[in-house]
Write a protein that binds this DNA or RNA. Structure first.
Length: 883
RNA sequence: GGGGGGUUAGCUCAGUUGGGAGAGCGUCAGGAUCGCACCCUGAAGGCCACGAGUUCGACUCUCGUACCCUCCA
């Protein structure tokens, strides 16, 4: 029986018994930030079981795709080394929401297994919770159930709970006896044993209690049913194979891996079989995660995906699969899962793109990190140790992005263990550094939040000017009753029109006028939710607590900020349209001068895409559509499809800012009235901030115009400097000039050499010749130290055995250059002479016996020194070669 | 926002007590061969990312800037 038939039978069986067939929901749990991935069949129904949501139907049946990797249930490193562990799996489940209970659940399960799937009842065993006599009675009453095969187990195995509090209850599992061949062989091997003989295939959860905070169980008025049967397991049983991996849910993929590797998969008996399983499993999860729009990154879900993909690549190396390999295998995966999930095909090309890119990046990471790791291991071994210190691990991970599990693998083969503890300590240090730098920047609010019992009312969405009462004045971190001219002050006004820094938008600047003084506000912050703190300086007079102040926001800055903010939303929408839905906001800064937008994207944005994005935003600006802002309930906002990326931060009532047909986002910031006010949108640059995170900086409105003017004037200056030609021609002109310059430089060097050669002929009589070796000391006036080298080249080219010492005279200093042929250098290391002469000149020098440099400041008595040096040089050389 | 690392020939990269800028591939020329891959000989190709500083002297040390990679927040 194929897995496809099992799916059909299961859904039909329960549909015909009143269950609503529910399609698998997303792998990303909706509205549950505590959960990384959907990891069980009941996750989409969680709110119903918790009583937060009312069920649309009393009974449901689903085949839910699940991911178990990262987080609490982390089996990642066991996957592939067992017959049953997977990162991606499908859970078949039938659910009752306060409708049927134990009796039907048990009867349905038994009927499905023994009749629909025709499993011999003699192979089946049952486990129930120790105290659940009701289940015992129900099971015993079923035809074909042997009461001696019903086993009572404790809380660990057969009592289920969602969390520390909430719905819970006993459960009952159905097991298949696979026969003694699968036993671990222990005499204690029986139901409940961890080995593969008694395989749990179906878990029936009887949700019948609610556990309160103090641990008391109270019966639920309408008990519910949650069951789960792993599709992979039951497929293996129905196919009569030993492992989940040998079913049609994996084999087609494993076959194509095998073809590529030119290594057979030996059905669990081959020494490399584990690698096939790891790769196949990880491709399934990878393809589904990518399909959901998750992109490899270094945090959260994206990080889990990256680890999965990189692990797959790592194991593909063990099989010596030709690289790149993931993209092709992804296609096989999509083909294999095509029946139940035809939608995968639409994402295939994007999935392949991301995979190729990630594979490329990882192979770079590996090939760069591997030599470093090997160096470290050799270092450890050469010290006769067998532990790789945490510091080295950290360095590999932190600097080179090298995966620790790969480290472990490589090290193990050399008998070296890893110091995980030390590594964790280093990681913690780094985390601490990160936190420090963060809170260090944050300005402390000098007064605790509890001091302020009435929230500030913010009117800045509609108005620019309003009177507000100064309810708090702070100077030098202390609360005061009045402040005077020249003093720095922080104050709270209510109501206020100043926008407090938040959501990436900077705080407003402006002016406050009181009856006896005024304050220039340089920024506004939100130290606590609901509070707005103005920071500034008293520019004249005195301001007292309790006074009414007239507030005037710096309108030019505010308007410039607003258009940058609205442009940010348009940019976000354009990015998603051009690059794809996987683009997620990762940070944003909105100021009057510019905007900065960080977002997740696996690779740099190409020039073409950037131009398209810019053009799109400007097109939307020209349409001059109104920007609407409204407050609504969060659930409604989500229905409207508003983009929300930090949902834990929002309360129940959220503000939604939208441009019709283009962009809808949760946003607390202030915005332009219509897109036309933005005027012009100009991208300044695109860059990377972290792995997988790109940054776009742009300017709008008058800032954009100023920028263009600036460019224009520098371009004009450039053109003028280039001789009045247009910039397009200036480029080729520049290239010509450059090659011309290079040619001239070469020519000058060649001419100089020639000149030096002819000059040097005249020095012929200055050479000192002893026993076939010759020595020359001479001084030359130069204007570039490099000329000395050219001279040296010219001088030494004719000398087979000898030495030359040149003294170059520059306007303010002298330089020395010495050379000796190999044979001469043995008796007459020229570096000795350079060193001692440099010292004489009041400088330093040195080098190698065959080549040395030195020098010093211009001496007053150059002439006499020269004579002296000439004499010493000749004598030393003569002494060395006398005999 | 804070760390760690990188930037050397068209490409991939070497280059330590600071002292003449290198290799492989590619390009071009010549040789060898019926011809090709190969092989042999030779050549061109470099502001050692940019800017300061230290030094007689910086690819090398220090600081800053830009870009890229990577980790943390």
């Amino acid at each position: 029986m194929t897995s496809w038939e099992i799916r059909q039978k299961y859904l039909h069986f329960f549909e015909s018994r009143g269950h609503a067939v529910t399609p698998s929901s997303s792998l990303i749990p909706a509205g549950d930030p505590t959960l990384l991935f959907t990891n069980a069949g009941m996750v989409p129904f969680k709110d119903i079981f918790l009583g937060l949501e009312s069920p649309r139907t009393p009974r449901a049946v689903s085949i839910q795709k699940c991911i178990r990797a990262g987080g609490k249930h982390n089996d990642l490193d066991r996957v592939g080394f067992t017959r049953r562990h997977h990162t991606f799996f499908e859970m078949m489940g039938n659910f009752s929401f306060g409708d049927y209970f134990k009796s039907d659940a048990i009867a349905f399960a038994w009927e499905f297994l023994t009749r629909e799937l025709a499993i011999d009842p003699k192979r089946l065993w049952i486990t129930i919770f120790r105290d659940d006599d009701e289940a015992m009675a129900l099971w015993s009453a079923l035809p074909g159930v042997d009461p001696s095969r019903i086993v009572r187990l404790g809380e660990k195995d057969n009592f289920w709970q969602m969390g520390d509090t909430g719905p819970c209850g006993p459960c009952s599992e159905i097991l298949v006896d696979q026969g003694p061949a699968f036993s671990c062989g222990s005499p204690d091997c029986m139901v409940g044993c961890d080995c593969d003989r008694y395989l749990e295939i179906w878990n029936l959860v009887f949700m019948q209690f609610n556990r309160s905070r103090d641990g008391v169980l109270t019966p639920l008025p309408r008990p519910s049913i949650d069951t789960g049967m792993g599709l992979e397991r039951i497929s293996a049983i129905m196919a009569g194979v030993a492992s989940n991996y040998e079913t049609d849910l994996f084999l087609p993929l494993i076959d194509s891996i095998s073809q590529k590797a030119k290594v057979p998969y030996e059905m669990g008996n081959g020494s490399l079989d584990y690698a096939f399983r790891v790769i196949a499993d990880h491709l399934r999860s990878g393809v589904f995660l990518l399909h959901e729009g998750i992109v490899p990154s270094n945090e959260g879900r994206g990080y889990v995906l990256r680890r999965i993909l990189r692990r797959a690549i790592q194991f593909s190396l063990e099989l010596e699969l030709p690289s790149p390999v993931l993209s092709d295998l992804a296609k096989q995966t999509v083909l294999m899962m095509h029946h139940p999930y035809p939608e995968l095909e639409n994402s295939l090309s994007r999935i392949q793109d991301v995979l190729s890119h990630e594979e490329d990046r990882f192979s770079r990471t590996l090939s760069e990190g591997l030599p470093v790791l090997k160096g470290y291991i050799n270092e450890v071994i050469s010290r006769n140790e067998n532990i790789l210190p945490g510091e080295m691990l950290f360095k590999l991970h932190d600097t080179h992005g090298f995966p620790i599990d790969v480290c472990e693998d490589v090290a193990r083969h050399q008998g070296v263990h890893l110091d995980f503890k030390g590594f964790e300590e280093k990681m913690e240090e780094q985390r601490e550094r990160g936190r420090q730098s963060w809170v260090g920047k944050k300005e402390d609010f000098p007064v605790p939040a509890s001091r302020l019992s009435v929230p500030v009312s913010f009117l800045g969405y509609e108005r620019d000017q309003v009177m507000g009462e100064a309810i708090l004045l702070i100077r030098d971190g202390k609360e005061v009753t009045e402040v005077h001219e020249g003093e720095s002050v922080s104050l709270v006004l209510t109501p206020t029109v100043f926008y407090g820094e938040g959501g990436g938008q900077v705080g407003d600047r402006g002016l406050l006028r009181g009856p006896f003084g005024q304050i220039t506000v340089s920024s506004a912050k939100k130290p606590w939710p609901g509070w707005i703190l103005l920071v500034g300086t008293v520019t004249s007079g005195t301001v007292r607590k309790g006074e009414l102040l007239d507030q005037q926001v710096d309108l030019f800055s505010r308007r410039q900020t607003e258009i940058h903010h609205t442009a940010t939303h348009l940019l976000h929408a354009a990015l998603r349209q051009v690059l794809g839905e996987h683009v997620r906001q990762a940070g944003s800064l909105v100021t009057p001068e510019r905007l900065r937008f960080d977002f997740s994207s696996p690779h740099p944005v190409s020039k073409v895409d950037l131009e398209e994005i810019g053009a799109l935003v400007n097109e939307w600006i020209r349409r001059d559509q109104p920007v609407n802002a409204s407050e609504m309930e969060k659930s409604k906002a989500q229905e409207v499809g508003a983009l929300a990326f930090f949902d834990e931060k929002y309360g129940d009532i959220v503000r939604v800012v939208s441009v019709e047909g283009t962009s809808t986002e949760f946003c607390g910031g202030t915005h332009a009235r219509s897109t036309g006010q933005i005027g012009t949108f100009l991208i300044l640059q695109e860059s990377g901030v972290a792995a997988g995170i790109r940054r776009i900086e742009a300017v709008c409105g008058s800032a954009a115009y100023d920028r263009i003017l600036y460019w224009k004037s520098s371009l004009e200056a450039f053109e003028q400097e280039m001789g009045g030609v247009k910039s397009e021609e200036a480029l080729s002109r520049l290239a010509t000039l450059k090659t011309e310059r290079d040619r001239l430089q070469r020519e000058v060097a060649a001419l100089k050499t020639k000149l030096f050669v002819s000059e040097d002929r005249q020095r012929d009589k200055e050479w000192v010749r002893v026993n076939g070796s010759s020595f020359l000391f001479t001084d030359v006036t130069i204007d570039d130290p490099k000329d000395l080298r050219l001279r040296m080249d010219a001088l030494k080219s004719d000398v087979t055995s000898g030495a030359v010492l040149l003294l170059g005279v520059l306007p303010e200093r002298v330089v020395l250059l010495g050379w000796a042929s190999e044979d001469v250098a043995k008796k007459f290391p020229v570096s000795d002479l350079v060193k001692s002469f440099s010292a004489r000149l009041g400088g330093r020098g040195g080098g190698k016996p065959i080549w040395a440099e030195g020098g010093g400041p211009m001496p007053e008595n150059l002439e006499s020194l020269l004579a002296e040096m000439r004499e010493i040089g000749a004598r030393t050389f003569g002494d060395a070669f006398k005999a």
